[in-house]
């Protein structure tokens, strides 16, 4: 980890994960992993199923506590504050945008889906909400398709459109960190490319954690990439190194080149 800190010592880390261990009952999901995430980078997280990628994201925005029987040890600091002891958990979650693998359309209209988070945060003015909705839908490459039917149910959209709706929703509270959990599995390749372009632009405004099963997606987008396996952090380094012929670990090389996983 020290090597990473040295390499990036000119920017302060926005997320500091220190010796994080998570168990579901007796079953370990994360075994004491530590790394930092820096401001305005895209960190790709790759790894086969059961490697703890989703768990990691859920620890950061503290939605893991809705799963019964989980224990979390170690610390996750966001802007220097430990998320597990933070007083205002709702405020914490507003700093983080989360996109889940399968689209979860809240059973509300398209407009209300995007306006939900600003409203819970206390934005009431119609003009302000209109502005947020339009901006977020445009960022998620959905505005042109739905601008004439903002009042229809969000769940009536197609799968790919719903996924873009969830991305728009995740952007609606202007998060500092955007967590994308395999966002592209329900989206067609063309739209995926459009969203990836958006992500590249968003990097200027926020930090992006990109969990993906498509190693090429991490290669295209990420500044740095972490490889996780069975709850361990095998390697975290710049994307160039991870995808080079000589990454730090043989397992990384094998996974990236499709020899296993």
């Amino acid at each position: 980890m020290n090597t990473n800190s040295d390499r990036r010592s000119h920017t302060a880390p926005i997320i500091e994960i220190n010796d994080l261990t998570v168990r579901y009952g007796d079953k370990p999901a994360l075994n004491g992993i530590s790394f930092d995430v820096y401001k305005n980078e895209i960190l790709g997280i790759i790894g086969p199923a059961q490697s703890g990628k989703t768990t990691l994201l859920k620890v950061i925005n503290r939605t893991l506590e809705f799963t019964a029987g989980t224990t979390v040890e170690g610390s996750v600091k966001l802007d220097g504050v430990d998320v597990n002891t933070v007083g205002d958990v709702y405020g914490l979650r507003r700093k983080i945008g989360m996109v889940l693998p399968l689209p979860v359309g809240l059973p509300l209209s398209i407009y209300d889906n995007v306006a939900f988070a600003p409203r819970t945060a206390g934005v009431r003015a119609k003009s302000e909400l209109d502005e947020i909705v339009e901006r977020c839908l445009q960022q998620a490459a959905l505005w042109d398709e739905v601008k004439d039917r903002l009042n229809t149910l969000g769940t009536k959209l197609s799968g790919g459109q719903q996924q873009r709706l969830t991305i728009a929703r995740a952007l609606s509270h202007q998060p500092e960190i955007l967590c994308l959990d395999e966002f592209s599995i329900a989206v067609d390749p063309i739209t995926t490319m459009r969203i990836e372009d958006v992500l590249k632009e968003l990097r200027a405004e926020m930090t992006i954690l990109l969990v993906t099963n498509l190693v090429q997606q991490a290669k295209r987008l990420a500044n740095r990439t972490a490889f996780m396996l069975n709850g361990d952090l095998v390697e975290i380094d710049t994307t160039d190194v991870i995808f080079s012929d000589s990454p730090g670990s043989q397992a990384t090389y094998d996974y990236v080149n499709g020899t296993f996983g």
Binding site: N61, T63, F66, Y90, G91, R93, R94, I96, M98, L100, L102, V104, L106, P107, F116, A117, T120, A121, T166, R169, A170, S172, H173
Partner: peptide, 18 residues
């Protein structure tokens, strides 16, 4: 009520009552 719906709503910063 699907858990992902609850989780999504919580992830957007809604409190329990909302």
């Amino acid at each position: 009520v699907p858990i992902p719906i609850r989780e999504s709503a919580y992830a957007l910063g809604a409190n329990r009552w909302q």
